[in-house]
Design a protein around this nucleic acid. Structure first.
Length: 410
RNA sequence: GGAGGGGUGGGUGAGUGGUUAAAGCCACCAGACUGUAAAUCUGGCGUCCGGAAGGGCUUCGCAGGUUCGAAUCCUGCCCCCUCCA
């Protein structure tokens, strides 16, 4: 346990708070492998960059010889995340849970070292729980304590519903810490309450309380709210390289710094330098470097370079991408009655609009271009004509907005 | 157990019998500008037919009913919230 990132880097960079920092540093000094707890809910198997901030911490600590305990929350998944809008979701089948758990791990181990990870299921201990155990567990805490939690407090105050099972969620998560005898638990700052309940419960049950490692919330691609799947402002790990690169390029400039800090290994001194040169160099250059770095982490360098080339070609120079999905347009074969097909129908059928009405709106707004396959000439289509008036060639490309293309083929 | 309030389009939230496919705001889409950033301006934002003008159909928790006409009135049901006990 010698090589690896330095202590300062591990405990400060991309970390919001460690409760307690001092005790954690002391634990590291004990020279024994620590048990690092990380749980996930198999009803939501998608990992995005927001989760990666914490996963990188796990990996760094693994490099120092510590052990990750990954808990599959097959019981907590049935309760649902206490986020207010969650209406009771249908319970997942056993098969779905297994599929989701596999999919989660496939992504998880893109960052975390599999060899130093132990995967356990909540049902290993909750499967044997009795009502007496549940009562015993709930009896250790009070409603007042749980209303301390920000989310509960808010909803209570605003007279919005709080399901009783939602109170169970932190309790189960806390008991996990006891079950796996965790030394440190990881989560975003929004998880603070749950992690602290675990810390407290361990103390009550005669274990050494875990340390809580809290990561900052990564702001999403909208530049306003924390990255989350339900807000649609996320970059998924399983995103194709081009999309991943593109989404990072669309980030507001202010996020370049935090993303470099939380999601890359670019040294802090270098980041400070980037900061200083701000104003002299077009920020797009920094952002490209960021997009390349992150894309390469989850794919590989070749794929990242290709994604960058794609970006430069399609977005910056407004060229045509290499791979354009093809759509077999029947009227090109000349078998569509006397007048041919309407443009709006073609756009809809080719998947460039979600309804014919939307396709018409796009046409009216000048969002549709037809690009000749041979010459590359683009023509803006602003009338919802029939194909006989359109002069459409085989292999012509239909373009919607700036970056959605479909090639029309016979 | 009792009394009261409420469920509207992706979100918020107006609207209490026709002028309402349903205000405003947010989100989103498109155009201009541009660095696929931000800001700004413009247009759009249920669906189907029509080149267009325009027309049809579907939508206000669910199911019925009253009416020429219902998001708006009536009945039943489901769900949420508050207060009292």
């Amino acid at each position: 346990m010698t090589s690896g990132p330095n202590l300062e880097e591990i405990t400060r960079r991309g970390v919001q708070e460690i409760i307690s920092h001092e005790q954690f540093v002391r634990m590291l000094g004990e020279g024994k492998p620590l048990r690092l707890k990380m749980g996930f809910d198999p009803s939501r198997p998608d990992i995005h960059l927001g989760h990666v901030v914490g996963l990188r911490k796990l990996r760094q600590l693994q490099q120092l010889g510590h052990q990750v305990i990954l808990i599959v929350g097959d019981w907590t998944a049935q309760i649902g995340d206490p986020s207010g809008q969650t209406v009771t979701r249908p319970a997942l089948t056993h098969e779905e849970v297994i599929t989701n758990a596999e999919s989660y791990q496939r992504q998880f181990f893109k960052v975390v070292d599999r060899d130093r990870t132990q995967v356990v299921w909540q049902s290993e201990w909750f499967g044997k729980f009795t009502l007496a155990d549940v009562i015993g567990l709930t009896g250790r805490f009070t409603v007042a304590q749980f209303l301390e939690r920000d989310d509960f407090a808010k909803r209570f105050q605003e007279h919005r519903p709080i399901a009783i099972t939602e109170f169970l969620y932190p309790l189960l998560q806390a008991y996990d810490s006891v079950a796996v005898e965790s030394d440190v638990e990881f989560g975003g700052t929004d998880q603070m309450f749950n992690l602290l309940v675990g810390r407290e419960l361990q103390g009550m049950m005669g274990q050494r309380p875990q340390q809580c490692f809290l990561m900052p919330m990564l702001v999403g691609t909208d530049g306003a709210q924390k990255m989350s799947k339900s807000l649609g402002n996320y970059v998924a790990l399983e995103e194709p390289p081009e999309d991943m690169y593109g989404k990072i390029m669309s980030l507001p400039d202010e996020l370049i710094g935090p993303y470099f800090e939380y999601l890359t290994d670019v040294p802090m001194e270098e980041l400070a330098e980037l900061e200083r040169s701000n104003g002299e160099i077009n920020p797009i250059e920094f952002k490209k470097r960021l997009a390349l770095d992150i894309t390469a982490q989850f794919h590989d360098l070749a794929a990242a370079n290709a994604a960058q080339a794609h970006f430069e070609n399609v977005v910056q120079r407004r060229g045509l991408p290499e791979d354009i999905p093809e759509f077999t347009e029947p009227s090109l074969a000349g078998s569509q009655g006397e007048q041919g097909r309407r443009l709006s129908n073609i756009i809809y059928d080719a998947g460039l609009a979600s309804s014919v009405s939307e396709a018409k709106r796009l046409i009216n707004q000048g969002a549709i271009e037809l690009i000749d396959a041979a010459t590359g000439d683009a023509r803006r289509l602003t009338r919802d004509d029939r194909t006989d008036a359109l002069d459409m060639q085989d292999r012509a490309v239909l373009k919607r907005g700036n970056r959605r293309f479909v090639r029309l083929v016979k």
